[in-house]
């Protein structure tokens, strides 16, 4: 099996996996980064959202062979102590229900705020396309707005 060298959360990591293995499963099964979740495997739900060079991508459909030296950041690497303004806003607004989708939601929101620090409702509608089966959308929107004020 080929061996891949990756940059994840600012660290260099290696994994020996088949070249078609999606980044999601490399993170979860080989690098023990379990915060990134699996929901559909077909780029529909966003539970597997991570950043590649600062952009939100769906890691379930990105084969490891295509990652090369691009910088990957997962929910574990979003902030040192869980204190990214979005993480704080998520807690303050008690957003989560089951919580399963929320790492992906926060990663999607973080990418949005990094290119647009003051998103309108329409911007949020356009950018936040992840599924939340529990229906926390109203609180997600609120949390993004309140984090945006603090950035």
């Amino acid at each position: 099996m080929p061996k891949y060298t990756l940059s994840v959360n600012g660290q260099t990591m290696t994994a020996e996996v088949d070249e078609d293995t999606p980044l999601l499963w490399v993170l979860r099964d080989h690098l023990n980064l379990l915060g990134t979740k699996f929901g559909c495997g077909v780029a529909q739900c966003g539970a597997c959202t991570v950043h590649m060079n600062g952009n939100a991508i769906r890691s379930c459909v990105l084969p490891i062979s295509a990652v090369s030296d691009n910088e990957i950041v997962t929910i574990e690497g979003l902030s040192k102590t869980g204190d990214h303004p979005l993480q704080i806003a998520w807690e303050e607004n008690d957003v989560s229900q089951c919580g399963y989708c929320q790492a992906g939601q926060i990663m999607a929101a973080a990418a949005l705020l990094s290119r647009n620090p003051t998103p309108s409702d329409e911007d949020i509608d356009r950018s936040m396309t992840n599924i939340c089966r529990c229906g926390t959308h109203v609180r997600i929107r609120k949390a993004i707005h309140s984090a945006s004020e603090k950035i």
Binding site: G35, T36, S96, Q102
Partner: peptide, 19 residues
């Protein structure tokens, strides 16, 4: 009262069956 696991969830530390 906020969810007792709120900060674990937002930092990716909350573990589910899949984990």
């Amino acid at each position: 009262v906020n969810d007792v696991d709120a900060s674990k969830i937002t930092s990716g530390q909350a573990l589910f069956g899949i984990d």
